[in-house]
Amino acid sequence: MNTTRHFIITSALAGLVLAGCGTADSAETTRDHAEDGEFFSVEDPWIKATEESLDTSSDHSMTGAFVHLTNVSGEDQTIIGADAEIAEVVELHEVVDDGGVNLMQEKEGGFPVAADERYELNPGQDHIMLMDLTDDVNPGDRIEVTLELANGETQVIDFVAKEYVGAQENYGDLEHDHGDDAEHDHTH
């Protein structure tokens, strides 16, 4: 009888240890794809190359950045802005239907990303717009973009430039104030 009791206690302890390992493994899995201290795991970060040979009708002073983000911070986050050394102006944009025409415009309120949810930035949808570029973006270039969050934190993402002709941006009569009272028409 003593042996049976010892076996039951040993089995119960082994079960608790295994259950504890399972919980640690689950918590580890949530942050598998993000570095410590990062708010988002990052999948397929790319930026549209501006190389003239790709599309002679495109405006080479601007480009779009795209990425799939998963909020691994455990709290709701809102991306309220972005910054990149290669661009004088970086904005968060959305696509709206303006009478059958897809029109790109700055997205008010930023990109809200609920805890443990995925948020996709894709051509023809929400994206990061880099304008007044200081240099060409060629296929294979690596461009760092810093996401700015509502909580005051930031996360840097390394984007790779790719050839992409499509989802041509239409900005209608959109004007951007760059602090010097200069007005820029981004229609193309």
Results as ranks from 00 to 15, higher is better:
180 D>C: 11
46 W>T: 14
128 I>F: 03
141 D>Q: 06
89 V>D: 15
139 P>G: 04
153 E>R: 10
118 R>E: 09
63 T>D: 07
105 Q>Y: 05
42 V>P: 05
56 T>A: 15
135 D>H: 03
162 K>P: 04
187 T>K: 15
137 V>G: 11
44 D>P: 02
67 V>K: 07
65 A>Y: 03
56 T>L: 14
31 R>L: 01
22 G>A: 04
163 E>K: 08
159 F>C: 01
96 V>H: 11
65 A>N: 05
119 Y>M: 04
187 T>V: 10
70 T>A: 09
21 C>R: 06
98 D>L: 13
175 E>Y: 03
19 A>K: 13
107 K>C: 05
29 T>I: 13
125 Q>A: 12
8 I>L: 11
160 V>M: 03
143 I>H: 04
17 V>L: 15
137 V>N: 09
20 G>S: 08
9 I>T: 14
181 D>H: 15
158 D>W: 02
90 V>F: 12
80 I>K: 15
120 E>H: 00
2 N>T: 02
163 E>L: 03
121 L>Y: 06
168 Q>W: 11
61 S>W: 02
149 L>A: 07
110 G>F: 04
87 A>W: 07
4 T>D: 11
57 S>F: 03
117 E>D: 04
128 I>T: 00
144 E>K: 12
51 E>K: 05
42 V>Y: 04
175 E>W: 01
137 V>S: 09
33 H>V: 01
178 H>N: 14
17 V>H: 14
138 N>M: 09
6 H>K: 14
20 G>F: 00
188 H>Q: 13
96 V>G: 06
159 F>W: 02
148 E>R: 07
171 Y>C: 14
42 V>L: 01
109 G>C: 07
11 S>F: 10
49 A>K: 04
87 A>E: 09
16 L>Q: 08
54 L>I: 05
120 E>R: 07
163 E>V: 03
183 E>V: 03
165 V>K: 11
109 G>I: 07
39 F>S: 11
163 E>F: 02
3 T>C: 05
78 T>I: 13
111 F>V: 03
177 D>W: 14
107 K>P: 00
98 D>F: 09
21 C>H: 00
177 D>Y: 15
160 V>D: 02
70 T>N: 08
67 V>G: 05
25 D>S: 07
47 I>P: 06
37 G>R: 13
26 S>E: 10
127 H>W: 14
32 D>H: 05
88 E>P: 00
172 G>D: 10
39 F>P: 01
148 E>D: 10
166 G>A: 14
58 S>M: 11
91 E>P: 01
87 A>I: 03
97 D>A: 08
138 N>V: 09
26 S>M: 12
81 G>H: 04
172 G>C: 11
42 V>F: 02
151 N>L: 00
160 V>F: 06
116 D>C: 04
13 L>E: 13
124 G>T: 10
172 G>I: 07
